[in-house]
């Protein structure tokens, strides 16, 4: 781990991080205000009842909770938050490795007295730390927004658990892009590293439309984390969290192994 490189990664990517964190906080503000302005979830439930059930299912709103915490967990930590996080992790992962190889800055870096392993590990750590900090800010913003904009109080346990689970899910999906970025040149890295997560998201939407296509959920990790699971806080949640950590660790380690053996600037 090189602190100099970590600080440099921070300086190079702070704008990207700030932009996406602000987008997510803005979206969270809208969700809190939506609940507060309508005096609860009932008006939204009435609107949803008038929509085609397939559409509501695709949005993953069919088990929308009426209580404040359940509402926030279902509406915010769903499709849109996953999509925004996916864009952030894809851009960041590609910039850190494949993009740096493409623009020559990786060669500049590797000309320094830094081992490839140190370069790779530092960038991988930066990647996960930045996602962690993003969800930490969102978690804190959720409490502050509830305190200042809403008369309701967020249930601390489930809310923090949801942030943890979503952080691990976003990290695991992001680790796939990171792996591709460490292993391949920018074109193939973009195709695999962005294409597959986007496919996961499409399957997440499609798999919820009806029971006939629900088998699609088996091919995407997004349905793993949902409000019901977090509210139950059962053993399944912890097993899923452990599995997501393992996936992130395995993909990152594999990526590092490929990176230290590959040609740079070929």
């Amino acid at each position: 781990m090189s602190w100099t490189l970590f600080r440099q990664s921070l300086r190079q990517n702070w704008f990207l991080w700030t932009l996406f964190t602000l987008i997510l906080v803005f979206y969270l503000t809208m969700v809190v205000l939506m609940y507060q302005a309508n005096g609860g979830a009932e008006p939204l439930l009435e609107v949803l009842a008038s929509l085609p059930p397939e559409f509501v299912s695709a949005l993953h709103f069919n088990d929308l909770s009426v209580d404040y915490t359940g509402f926030i967990l279902t509406v915010f930590y769903g499709l849109l938050a996953f999509a925004i996080s996916l864009i952030y992790t894809a851009i960041l992962a590609l910039r850190l490795f494949a993009g740096a190889d493409e623009d020559g800055s990786m060669s500049t870096l590797l000309a320094m007295p830094l081992s490839r392993l140190k370069v790779a590990l530092t960038k991988v750590v930066y990647f996960f730390v930045s996602i962690f900090l993003m969800y930490m800010v969102i978690a804190i913003a959720g409490f502050l927004l509830s305190y200042y904009l809403s008369e309701e109080v967020l249930a601390v346990g489930p809310y923090l658990l949801m942030n943890l689970a979503v952080f691990l899910l976003v990290s695991a999906v992001g680790a796939l892009t990171l792996f591709a970025s460490m292993t391949f040149k920018v074109t193939l890295a973009s195709l695999l590293g962005v294409g597959v997560p986007v496919l996961f998201l499409v399957l997440y939407v499609a798999g919820a439309i009806s029971s006939q296509v629900s088998f699609l959920n088996w091919f995407t990790p997004y349905p793993l984390v949902h409000t019901g699971l977090v509210l139950d806080a059962s053993l399944s949640l912890w097993l899923i969290c452990a599995a997501l950590v393992l996936v992130s660790a395995a993909l990152s380690s594999l990526g590092v192994l490929f990176f230290i053996r590959r040609n740079i600037g070929e």
């Binding site: 020559g104 060669s107 500049t108 590797l110 000309a111 007295p113 830094l114 081992s115 490839r116 392993l117």
Partner: peptide
């Protein structure tokens, strides 16, 4: 490479 570069100065053809 990390050890090898400890005492090396490098000018790339097209430095990034």
């Amino acid at each position: 490479s990390g050890k090898a570069h400890q005492n090396v100065g490098y000018l790339a053809q097209e430095s990034a």
